[in-house]
Nucleic acid binder design. Structure first.
Length: 246
DNA sequence: GAAATTTGACCAAG
DNA sequence: CTTGGTCAAATTTC
């Protein structure tokens, strides 16, 4: 397979240029897939193929979005939003990270029971204003990074059923995390307004600068080429910025 | 000393 | 049996 040479977009709008770049990216991903299939160890090969496939899918869906907008310019504006992500359901913001909802069958409990879940791809999995407590961590088959399990810190006090799973998807910078939210926060609607929100820190939620960072994530964070505290506090500022913007 | 995290054991489903 | 999700004692952090 040969790559088309990087052509200057002809008589182009920025959108045309973006489409051209996405097409190039798709070709590169295909090239990468062919290389990745030469990895000898089956597990690593499969994981890599899956990741490359996701990259291809992401670019193809971006392509189709852009192309459909060319045909129907007023349908569904796609916004490049900061990395705040929508909460457990009290707001309906859809811009920014990729979100989708579906029902999932739980492995425990009544057979066939389904739970409301929402999946979000974000680079700031800790910043959603809720207070989470980590209760587990698991290596997932064919996944490069472990999945971290959190439940609402008020799950005991107020029987709040909200949970979330966080799994790093890539070691790029910024690293992307797949966040799976399960159940709505009941503590949120009941107690949010009573929180004494101090102006600066407010309610601190997951702190990924501490030991809860899994080693690969730490590696990604330290790629900032600064000493750890500075590098991370910079990104934390960015997160709290999007938090305020909420 | 309280609160949060880590981590291996345990459990249910397939 | 394997796998993903949860529990809970031990450990760490504040």
């Amino acid at each position: 397979m040969t790559l088309s040479p990087p052509q200057p977009p002809p008589s182009s709008s920025p959108r045309h240029a973006a489409i051209q770049e996405l097409r190039r990216g798709t070709q590169l991903a295909e090239l990468l897939r062919q290389q990745v299939e030469l990895i000898p160890e089956p597990n690593r090969r499969h994981a890599a193929v899956v990741n490359v496939g996701q990259i291809s899918m992401a670019m193809e869906s971006s392509l189709s979005i852009l192309q459909s907008e060319m045909e129907h310019p007023f349908v569904s504006e796609v916004m490049a939003a900061p990395t705040a992500y929508s909460d457990g359901g009290t707001s309906r913001r859809r811009n920014g990270p990729v979100t989708c909802t579906r029902k999932v069958r739980h492995r425990r409990g009544r057979a066939g029971a389904e739970l409301p879940i929402k999946e979000i791809l974000t680079e700031a999995p800790e910043n959603d204003r809720f207070h989470w407590r980590k209760y587990g961590e698991k290596n997932i088959l064919y996944a490069e990074y472990p999945r971290l399990y959190y439940k609402c810190a008020y799950s005991d006090d107020h029987k709040c059923p909200a949970k979330k799973y966080v799994q790093q998807q890539s070691n790029s910078y910024p690293p992307l995390f797949l966040v799976t939210l399960i159940n709505e926060h009941t503590c949120d609607t009941l107690f949010r307004d009573n929180e004494p929100s101090s102006s600066s820190s407010g309610s601190q939620v997951l702190d990924f600068t501490k030991a809860s960072l899994s080693p690969p994530l730490m590696a990604a964070a330290s790629e900032l080429k600064k000493d750890e505290e500075d590098g991370i506090s910079v990104s934390m500022h960015r997160y709290s910025y999007s938090y305020d913007e909420y």
